[in-house]
Design a protein around this nucleic acid. Structure first.
Length: 185
DNA sequence: TCAGTGATTAGG
DNA sequence: CTAATCACTGAG
């Protein structure tokens, strides 16, 4: 099936501040158990930028959980939080430069916990390579949405400087955007 | 606004 | 070993 637009290594091995907004409109493709391929348009992302970024998990050092962020762009950083939700992240930049993009929403599934539930993402996807995997990858389908940016959500612990960086990128219109939620934008 | 839920981490 | 933390969500 149409895998022609699959993004290659070069797309991911760039600064996360370039990759995160460019992921908007791309199609996240996943092969489900029966072999059916489902595609979801990415609508909401957040950039986490290296060891200096106090909101980035890698800022507290290399641990078993954050290890994959040090291995170069294109891999998946998947982790479990609040005892219930898997978070899906795409590693960017080069080796030993731990950056990642949180997939905060895809079409019809706004919210990082809803994304992974819809896609069936779990621990087994940790470290998966989007460039070579046969069960998950990202395609460029030509969609270039209008988007806005704003502060990242849920990182009050990171301190004023990092908390206020406008590193969340979200498309306008497509899904029903949640207006005036006092936590975001 | 707030509880649920359990992996991960730092510290003793 | 213990305890705190948490890139969330849905109910009230």
């Amino acid at each position: 099936m149409g895998e022609t637009g699959r993004l290659g290594r070069d797309f991911y091995t760039r600064d996360v501040l370039e990759v995160a907004p460019e992921l908007l409109g791309k199609a996240l493709a996943i092969r489900l158990q029966k072999g059916d391929i489902h595609k979801f348009i990415i609508t909401d992302t957040e950039a986490y930028r290296g060891e200096e970024d106090r909101a980035c998990h890698a800022s507290r050092g290399r641990t078993p959980r954050t290890e994959i962020m040090f291995h170069g762009g294109g891999r998946l950083y998947v982790y479990f939080v609040y005892g219930m939700y898997w978070m899906l992240n795409i590693v960017t930049a080069g080796e030993n430069d731990p950056q990642a993009v949180l997939i905060r929403g895809v079409e019809n599934y706004p919210g990082p916990g809803k994304v992974t539930k819809a896609l069936g993402i779990d621990r087994s996807f940790y470290g998966e390579d989007l460039v070579t995997s046969d069960r998950i990858w990202i395609e460029d389908n030509g969609i270039v949405p209008v988007f806005k940016s704003g502060p990242r959500i849920g990182i009050d612990y990171a301190g004023e400087i990092w908390k206020n960086k406008p590193w969340r990128y979200f498309t306008l219109q497509l899904p029903v955007d949640r207006p005036g939620r006092e936590r975001g934008i």
